[in-house]
């Protein structure tokens, strides 16, 4: 069976969901370092100042945006709003996602990754 747009959206939603879960676990683990004292927390944060993590942060922004926008699309479809336009909604989610991503990613790259290199 060839991948059709609805199936692509479904797969992207699952993959971004798993990525966000992994991020959440790392995030909670890092915050938990606070219980070990300020030095332990600073040490954990220093690990994330690596330019590679800054790049990963930009990837995380893309993940959050597409997961959220497709989530709105799925909620609308769950409520039977615009079923005949589900492909168009996916295209809108991708288009609006790209605009939002660029609006966030460009400053993140310039003031985050670029400065830290």
């Amino acid at each position: 069976m060839r991948f059709l747009p609805g199936m692509v959206a479904h797969t992207v939603q699952r993959l971004t969901g798993i990525t966000l879960l992994v991020y959440l676990l790392v995030h909670v683990r890092t915050i938990h370092k606070l219980s070990e004292g300020p030095e332990a927390f600073d040490e954990a944060l220093a690990f994330f100042r690596n330019p590679l993590f800054k790049m990963a942060e930009i990837g995380l922004l893309a993940t959050v945006i597409i997961h959220a926008l497709n989530g709105i699309r799925l909620t609308m479809l769950d409520l039977s709003i615009g079923h005949s336009r589900q492909r168009l909604y996916w295209a809108w989610a991708l288009g609006a996602g790209l605009v939002l991503f660029l609006a966030g990613a460009v400053p993140m790259f310039l003031f985050g990754v670029w400065k830290s290199v």
Partner: peptide
């Protein structure tokens, strides 16, 4: 159903 829309598409 996981809202994949394959059924509707075909």
């Amino acid at each position: 159903c996981h809202t994949q829309f394959n059924c509707t598409a075909v």
